Computed example of a mutant assay.
Amino acid sequence: MSWIAECLSRVTRPMRLRLRRTVTTLSLTTLALTVLPPSVLAVEYNMPVGVTAVSREIHSLHMIIFWICVVIGIVVFGVMGYAMIKHRKSRGAVSASFHENTRIEILWTAIPLLILVVMAVPATATLKDMYDASESALDVKITGHQWRWQYEYLGEDVAFTSSLATPREQINNTAAKGEHYLLEVDNPLVLPIHRKVRFLTTSADVIHSWWVPDFGVKKDAIPGFINEAWTRIETPGTYRGQCTELCGKDHGFMPVVVEALPEAEFDEWLIARKAEAEAALNDAGRDWSLEELMEKGEKTYATICASCHQPDGQGMPPAFPSLVGSAIVTQDMQAHIDIVVNGKAGTPMAAFADVLSPVELAAVITYERNAWGNDTGELVQPAVIKEQLSQ
């Protein structure tokens, strides 16, 4: 131990203090890891096992690779530590002099190659299962928008958008944050358990990424491309995820929520949702009062528009102009309809023709023309929007 004493004698007092703090921190950490139960450690520091066969395969593969890396680390650093202690200069050790040792070169090439082969076999099997999206019982098209998801059940005439439901008061730190802060939505994606569901992901603007860790699914949504993924959920429940691509200033406000229902309950939900969609089409054909449109428009604006134009309509110029007293909002009705329906090229203003229903479009336009003191008294009927969308 004389070499340790010799090294410590050369360490300055500040360095000794830092070393002592480091040792204390490591000791406390080790004690905490010893006391905490394994279940807590797994939740806090490991990836979830998940509720699908693929997610369990991914977790098993992760643990295999992890323990291989642990063994490699122990062997490599163990040999290094042994060499530094056993063959240190203070004991009179002299470094060996050799060159082009063929046996050693073959050994340090063959061993890593063998390790890679051992890792590649289970990884290939897992990747093969992850990419097999054939023979699905239900197809769901997922379209990313800044900053919400649009879900379409292909062949079922059911589609809706899913937006962040966390109150703005929590985001602005004027109210206590809820249990699922920034991980709650107004319309979750509803799926059946025990059925193979294929996801077709794309984007209407920038690159997004749809991720639910409990499913073992993470797939990029790229404009102009369709990417495939699939899942078969085994346990009913609510599962949460997020967009994992940096898709803009509100990237953190784009959560994913999936409700997995037993098959019979899902079938009932789908029938009810179809009836709602049919009722919405009928609503687009009737005349709405200003009060009705204002009430619905306020809710639509808070969900869709407030993140950019602010709840009070003041916006964030120059990117997101104020709607209070705006010429386009208070004067030309058709220009107002065009920019909401079709967006504006070269600006952050997106098109909402494929995001909102005719009733929602009419309501939010009416609301903007009569809120925050604009008070134009004008309204637009959903039938007018529906007719323009069909042209």
Rank of each mutant, 00 (worst) to 15 (best):
18 R>C: 15
20 R>G: 15
136 S>P: 03
74 I>V: 15
391 Q>N: 13
38 P>R: 07
258 V>A: 11
137 A>K: 13
176 A>M: 07
140 V>L: 10
133 A>V: 06
172 N>R: 15
75 V>S: 13
9 S>R: 12
206 V>Q: 14
281 L>P: 00
41 L>P: 02
83 A>I: 08
317 P>Y: 09
94 V>D: 03
382 P>Q: 01
130 M>P: 01
17 L>G: 07
68 I>N: 07
234 E>H: 05
183 L>A: 15
121 V>F: 05
277 A>D: 08
58 I>H: 07
32 A>E: 01
378 E>N: 07
148 R>G: 10
310 Q>P: 01
169 E>R: 09
191 L>C: 05
328 I>N: 06
236 P>T: 12
297 G>Q: 05
3 W>T: 09
193 I>Y: 03
240 R>W: 09
15 M>Q: 12
363 A>M: 06
82 Y>D: 06
308 C>T: 02
184 E>M: 04
197 V>F: 01
65 I>P: 00
346 G>K: 05
89 K>Q: 13
59 H>Q: 07
160 F>C: 06
349 M>C: 03
199 F>V: 05
5 A>R: 11
182 L>S: 03
110 A>F: 05
84 M>W: 03
361 L>Q: 11
202 T>K: 04
145 H>E: 13
32 A>R: 01
199 F>D: 11
195 R>G: 00
388 Q>M: 13
264 A>W: 08
179 E>L: 09
318 P>R: 03
328 I>R: 00
365 I>G: 01
162 S>L: 04
350 A>I: 14
226 I>T: 15
35 V>S: 02
238 T>E: 14
89 K>Y: 08
33 L>N: 11
142 I>W: 01
48 P>Y: 06
144 G>Y: 04
358 P>S: 11
77 F>W: 15
103 R>M: 11
46 N>K: 00
311 P>D: 06
138 L>Q: 11
36 L>N: 00
206 V>C: 08
248 G>E: 07
169 E>V: 05
20 R>Q: 12
277 A>S: 13
152 E>C: 02
267 D>F: 06
214 D>H: 02
217 V>Q: 09
285 G>S: 10
175 A>S: 12
389 L>A: 10
277 A>R: 14
216 G>W: 03
145 H>W: 15
64 I>H: 09
287 D>Y: 04
